[in-house]
Simulated assay, not measured.
Amino acid sequence: MGMSVIISSANPDEAEQILKLQYLGYQSEAELYGDWTIDPLTQTLDSLREELADRHVLVARLGDEVVGTVRGWVDEEGVGQIGRLVVHPRMQRHGLGRRLLAALEERLAGEGVTGYELFTGHRSLGNLRLYQRLGYRETAVREVTRKLSIVTLNKPLAASLAA
């Protein structure tokens, strides 16, 4: 008998599982850019616990295991900021990232957002394809180092409701 993946708010006692998943999930990004000092790999447990208290943090659970997560908040301009979307490598390519993102968009829409914004690295082609399929459009590219440019993508609220 198989289990279903359930998406809901993270519990504070899941902080360690989330941090371990984040560390596992961002290894491929670190390798892609040759940089193991990226924020998701250096975040502390205390910092994550603060985010759990201050932001929307959703998790995807398979039984008791956290197999996916995403975070978001509404900024001063009313834009839903989305970050740290990560799915366990063995669970990728099954629509879980799309489900997590849609659930977070819905949660933030309840706060009256005008749209959504997220970012990823320029070499993260899988991420860029996913976001573009879900209605996000590139709005800016900022060079951070010779090896890394950050691509910012936005999605108006109307596009989210239609997706």
Rank of each mutant, 00 (worst) to 15 (best):
V5F: 03
H122G: 07
L48C: 01
S9L: 14
R146P: 05
K147F: 10
P89F: 08
L45W: 04
G63N: 06
T44H: 03
K147R: 13
P89R: 11
A159P: 04
A109R: 11
E14T: 01
R123V: 02
Y23A: 07
W36I: 05
E31V: 02
Y131E: 02
L134K: 01
L52R: 04
T145W: 08
M3V: 11
R61N: 03
F119K: 04
H56F: 11
R98A: 12
R49Q: 15
S124M: 15
E105T: 07
Q43G: 10
G80Y: 09
E51L: 12
G121P: 09
G80T: 04
N127Y: 08
Q81A: 03
E106G: 13
I18W: 01
L128F: 03
T114V: 14
G95N: 06
E50S: 13
R107H: 08
K147T: 10
I6W: 07
I38V: 08
Y26P: 06
M91L: 10
V144W: 12
A15I: 11
R98D: 04
T69K: 02
V113H: 10
H88K: 03
V59N: 00
L21G: 04
Y136H: 09
A103L: 01
Y33P: 02
V57K: 00
L62P: 00
G95Q: 10
V57D: 00
D64T: 10
G83C: 02
K155Y: 13
I38E: 03
V57N: 00
V67L: 03
L125Q: 12
D75L: 13
E138N: 03
T69V: 05
Q43N: 11
V74G: 07
E77Q: 11
D75A: 13
L130W: 03
D46E: 15
G121K: 07
A140C: 12
Y23T: 11
E51V: 01
A53I: 10
L58Q: 02
L148T: 04
P89I: 09
R90W: 12
V57R: 00
E105Q: 15
E16M: 11
L128G: 01
R90E: 15
I82G: 01
Y26N: 05
R137K: 13
L45V: 06
N11C: 07
V5K: 05
G78F: 10
L118T: 15
I82C: 02
L153W: 02
G126L: 14
P156N: 06
K20Q: 14
L101Y: 12
E50R: 13
L21R: 04
L52E: 05
K20W: 04
A15C: 14
H94P: 01
R84Y: 08
L128C: 04
E138F: 01
A103S: 11
I18C: 09
V66A: 09
E29F: 04
R84F: 08
I6Y: 02
G97S: 05
R71G: 06
L161A: 14
G25I: 02
E29A: 13
F119S: 12
H88D: 15
E106Q: 14
R98S: 13
V67G: 02
G135S: 05
E77H: 09
A158I: 09
E111D: 15
G126I: 10
V151W: 03
L148R: 11
R107I: 00
Y136P: 09
D75S: 04
S9P: 01
A15D: 06
P156T: 09
L58H: 02
G34P: 06
A159F: 09
V66C: 08
Q132L: 08
A159T: 14
N154Y: 13
L104Q: 04
P12S: 13
L41C: 07
